[in-house]
Design a protein around this nucleic acid. Structure first.
Lengths: 135, 135
DNA sequence: ATAATTGCAAATGCTTTGCTTGTGA
DNA sequence: TCACAAGCAAAGCATTTGCAATTAT
């Protein structure tokens, strides 16, 4: 059983055949597929799964904290399995490649900024857009 | 003449009656209106301006670097006049209020992170989501 | 058994576009 | 004048939803 299925069990999310397949595909994915791409991947396992079900499942998993949704610049929503340790993303503006990174100092400063403004930081979005330095 | 009109002149952007009105409304706006809201505001000056023109103008101004487009969580695109000094945003998750802030230290760290990953930072998006601390 | 889930197609909401008429430089 | 812009309505695209049939517990 894959890790997403386990999380569903733990959270009491009903496991249907379709959800199991979507869970499996997302567990294996190392990238950040959009719904269309995800639908293609699950279709190769069971071609009867509709895109509506993929949309519904992905939203369900997101609300359960199992998947994370990203809305990068001017594109469709992309998903990844919620990581144990939070990370942000750098997007290669030429290739579209997505690189994950962690920076504790930035995180800390974000908290301080929010606090200074009289807010408790609940969530944040940090995306860097860059082009590869050739050397 | 408002500041957006001036920028249009400088950049050789043709000034029509509609564009002048949109420029004026955006110059006066201290918030971050979406296209619908902007259309409402310009309509009160000239009710014949179509929403298609507002969409086209806002995109034109953005491409000319006159307006900045923001796509905050799960909503429609919002616009503000391109500021002289870059700033980021903190969004009140309860009221929707948007607070602007500047943090040079975070900016610096972003550049360092990108560099460390072998990238030249071209653009970035930083959004904080928080709830007001009552005291 | 029965409440939840699916597939399908239709509907939605934001945004863009084709086309004809109008207009700024 | 005449290339470009506006208005209108239709199209586009990602996403959501109503409904009847199916399925998990």
């Amino acid at each position: 059983m894959n890790s997403i299925e386990e999380k569903c069990k733990k959270k009491g999310v009903r496991l249907t055949e379709q959800r199991k397949i979507i869970a499996e595909v997302m567990s294996e994915s190392k990238d950040h597929p959009d719904v269309d791409e995800l639908h293609k991947r699950v279709s190769s396992v069971d071609k009867k799964i509709s895109i509506a079900t993929v949309y519904r499942t992905v939203k369900l998993f997101e609300e359960a904290g199992i998947l994370e949704k990203h809305e990068f610049k001017g594109g469709k929503a992309r998903y990844e399995q919620s990581p144990d340790e939070h990370h942000d993303h750098l997007i290669d503006i030429n290739s579209g490649e997505i690189i994950e990174f962690v920076d504790k100092d930035i995180e800390k400063l974000q908290n301080e900024v929010a606090k200074k403004l009289g807010y408790k930081l609940v969530d944040h979005k940090l995306e860097l857009y860059g082009s590869k330095i050739k050397k």
